[in-house]
Nucleic acid binder design. Structure first.
Lengths: 217, 217
DNA sequence: CTTGACATAGAACATTTGTTCACATATAAT
DNA sequence: ATTATATGTGAACAAATGTTCTATGTCAAG
């Protein structure tokens, strides 16, 4: 994304304000709305700045037309708003009795599900799993929920991870803490009403990190 | 591809006019401009038709805002079918001690959040709330979660609803059942480990129906 | 110091634009 | 026939919104 060096800070603010306003509302702002955001109390000054921006080629103004603005820039208006969304492959199911599926390089044939971009952030190898069974309830997750996983085999203190317990032959979703004193791992349910469990690190295998949950009622 | 069968010819004309105008100018048309194109001489009738279109869910209007129109894209550009996303207004918070915000107010300043269309379906008055506090844990919902609510004051048997309890002065999210025998209402937590509560119908006020949960870890 | 381009404030003004209301017209249901 | 609903006209109105004008302050160049 190129920052336009020919613009003053004020003018960049104004452009950004218009762009955001259009994204949110679907139509351009008024002079007064722009002024309010960027801190200009006079409509004439906003108008003045818009004229400057037009002269520099960053937008079009239609005189005497309320909200008669059109951004010239590369980022075009999307009247759909379906922008802040990422497609994530749905790899299968997560159930208590089975290990997690390993994310395959073969993303082509994978079913893709749309998720809000905030849920993914800049995470890297993200995939979705459908929850089967009610055994994840201590993670506030229910049958049918869609969980977003980040593929990784190690974890940091406090991460919510999917862990395979060798003894129980089960996958569980819990917050993980390394207890230096006892040399045990504490698995803390997300539901604070429930008690944590402690396991030997050798008995546990991290299969991924939970980064989001989507539930349809 | 069939155009929308629920629309009259007039309404389809108007939608098309708005779409073309936006494409050409970058901003929505006025009532008079729409009327001129589709052949309606009175702005009040254009306004009337826009209200109809809004009620049918094809666009958003911001009252008293010139050119305050936004088309709702439900359309044909997606071949995969799994691409679709809907924007819903984020109206505020849901906490145990407060009634829910009423979703009527000015959509002007409302933040919009994208949600997968499967979560919304064809529900009508949908809005999102951020969960504050951990008091909804019996509904498998945690602090910080985003809940999708459908605004309604009645409920059907088995619906997951947000109910205001007069006695407790608290909002709770539970599945609702009408017990014919005792003439009481049973509120069943989503977490089956927890016990239901029974209340008199007079002590309870339904504030909306829960239709989805989104959690960011 | 003076000048002039630039940026801003504030107010008065004019235009654009949505709303309201009183009143038609057609069509379908009662 | 009568009523109800959807749609339309037209005019008056009020609110939203861009324009114009005067005045102020800054800052670099002469």
């Amino acid at each position: 994304m190129s920052d336009h060096p020919r613009l003053t800070e004020r003018q960049r603010q104004i452009l950004e304000t218009i762009r955001e306003f259009c994204d949110e509302t679907g139509y351009p702002p008024t002079l007064r709305q722009i002024g309010e955001v960027v801190g200009i109390s006079s409509t004439s000054v906003v108008s003045y700045n818009l004229d400057v921006l037009q002269r520099k080629g960053f937008l079009m103004r239609d005189p005497d037309v309320s909200r008669g603005l059109k951004l010239i820039d590369e980022t075009l208006d999307d009247q759909g708003g379906s922008e802040n969304v990422t497609m994530v492959p749905l790899l299968g199911f997560i159930a208590a009795g089975e290990p997690l599926p390993i994310p395959d390089a073969d993303y082509e044939n994978q079913e893709l599900v749309p998720v809000p971009e905030e849920l993914v952030g800049d995470a890297n190898q993200v995939y979705a799993l459908r929850v089967r069974g009610i055994s994840m309830i201590d993670a506030l997750i229910n049958d049918g929920d869609l969980v977003l996983m980040q593929y990784q085999q190690n974890a940091e203190n406090g991460d919510m991870v999917a862990a395979w317990l060798n003894d129980e032959k089960a996958t569980t979703l819990k917050q993980i803490f390394w207890d230096k004193g006892t040399n045990l791992v504490r698995l803390q349910p997300a539901n604070p009403n429930m008690a944590p469990i402690y396991v030997h690190p050798a008995n546990l295998q991290i299969q991924g990190r939970l980064i989001g949950v989507i539930r349809r009622i």
